[in-house]
Design a protein around this nucleic acid. Sequence first.
DNA 1: CTGCATGCAAACCCTTTGCATTGGG
DNA 2: CCCAATGCAAAGGGTTTGCATGCAG
Lengths: 148, 148
Amino acid sequence: MAGPPWLHGRLRNAGFRLTLPREAILNVFAENPKHLSAEEVFLSVHEKYPGVGLATVYRTLDLLTQVGLVFKFDFGDGKSRYELASEAAKGHHHHMVCTRCGRIVDYSDFMEEEVKFIKGLEAELSKKHNFKIDKHQIHFYGLCERCQ
Amino acid sequence: MAGPPWLHGRLRNAGFRLTLPREAILNVFAENPKHLSAEEVFLSVHEKYPGVGLATVYRTLDLLTQVGLVFKFDFGDGKSRYELASEAAKGHHHHMVCTRCGRIVDYSDFMEEEVKFIKGLEAELSKKHNFKIDKHQIHFYGLCERCQ
DNA sequence: CTGCATGCAAACCCTTTGCATTGGG
DNA sequence: CCCAATGCAAAGGGTTTGCATGCAG
């Protein structure tokens, strides 16, 4: 496996080893960069590397989240979702969750105004409540086109 | 138990029975109207009514959520939180979650601008993506005053 | 070589469900 | 009276952990 150099550096710098499961998991995100559940990642990795266990997937997802390579989301359906941080940063977007079928629709419209607004809010809240904010999540819930 | 009349009507109208566990659970929220976990509700109810089981608490919380008497939140720590809808409506607020100690800080500052902004965003997103939005959640994550 | 990382399975935690019993309307 | 609602315990689903083994550095 080639292994993207940015990953190489990022992990090494943080004092972690570059292993096959870790590369495999990152590659899954690179191929399908959208809010994946741990099980989806596991199944995907499993196709090429049946030897990789589910526990390792969880441990790696946690590691990658801590290192900042992926973001972790919780849409309230009982399972966590993960997404490449670089992807999220490149095409910054938020999510709308269908409360009937569970489909997650991304949107990136109005992000400029939204980010501007949220940043301002963050600054004011941080100051007023002495709370060091480092991330936010905005989710909309409702019915998607198909379920209405 | 007295039992608030508004609850009485609300449940009856929806075709549900007014039972002791249901009143007891609503009373817990009335006394402590802040994002409670199912277990916290259970323990609270248990003090006065040891006969009420955890399963009933879950079933009731689900019922109350469906009827619209309480809101359900998920802050990503693995357990759902519930809050009186009337309370939330009266003193509309959002939450900041401490990623170290799990403390949840409410804020109600800037709500007017925030709600206005979000409503506008909802309207545009609904139209553009044909997604019928009926609720949103905005959470900020970071370090609370004590944990910094 | 050294010890971090892994695989496997068991443990965990929160939540849901099956079923006999209770009690509200 | 009848059926919704309950209590209890067992099952379920996602995630974490203990421990012996394996492999990156």
